[in-house]
């Protein structure tokens, strides 16, 4: 069944760096996906709620301010609690290598750091969405 992949691009916490998130959002749109962008300063609860109501295939989180270890796991936990752990959750931004294992243990499927071509993100999503497209 051919349908567009639905992605929620979200900015959790107080971080205002949105250049990367917007670039990603546009690239995904241009790759034929339906993109819902939340804007800045979203709580984990708001993000999980939006992901569920919009029934997205992918949640794409962007943080450059260093709060990822606190905020990312909260979001995956909320999704799991509501039975929505079939959603692919990926993240990006300034995320030190040493934090990655922890984030992956906590349900973040992949992390993309500065210099990532958007084509790599698109490819990754296409190959890893959990639900039939």
């Amino acid at each position: 069944m051919d349908r567009p992949i639905r992605v929620l691009v979200a900015k959790p916490g107080l971080d205002g760096h949105d250049r990367g998130a917007k670039v990603i959002a546009r690239a995904l749109r241009d790759a034929g996906m339906e993109v819902i962008y939340t804007g800045l300063r979203q709580t984990p609860e708001q993000i999980a709620e939006a992901a569920i109501q919009e029934d997205v295939d992918v949640v794409a989180l962007s943080i450059l301010s260093g709060a990822h270890n606190t905020l990312f796991p909260k979001i995956t936990k909320l999704l799991k609690e509501r039975g929505a752990d079939d959603i692919l959750v990926i993240g990006g931004g300034i995320i030190p290598e040493e934090d990655m294992p922890f984030l992956k243990e906590n349900g973040i499927a992949e992390i993309f750091t500065p210099g990532t071509p958007t084509s790599a993100v698109i490819e990754y999503i296409k190959q890893h969405v959990n639900r039939a497209v």
């Binding site: 567009p4 749109r29 034929g32 339906e34 993109v35 819902i36 962008y37 939340t38 804007g39 979203q42």
Partner: peptide
């Protein structure tokens, strides 16, 4: 052209 879209209304109702 691309079949994609940015769905931007939700921001105002978050």
């Amino acid at each position: 052209f691309t079949g994609g879209s940015i769905l931007g209304d939700r921001i105002r109702m978050q």
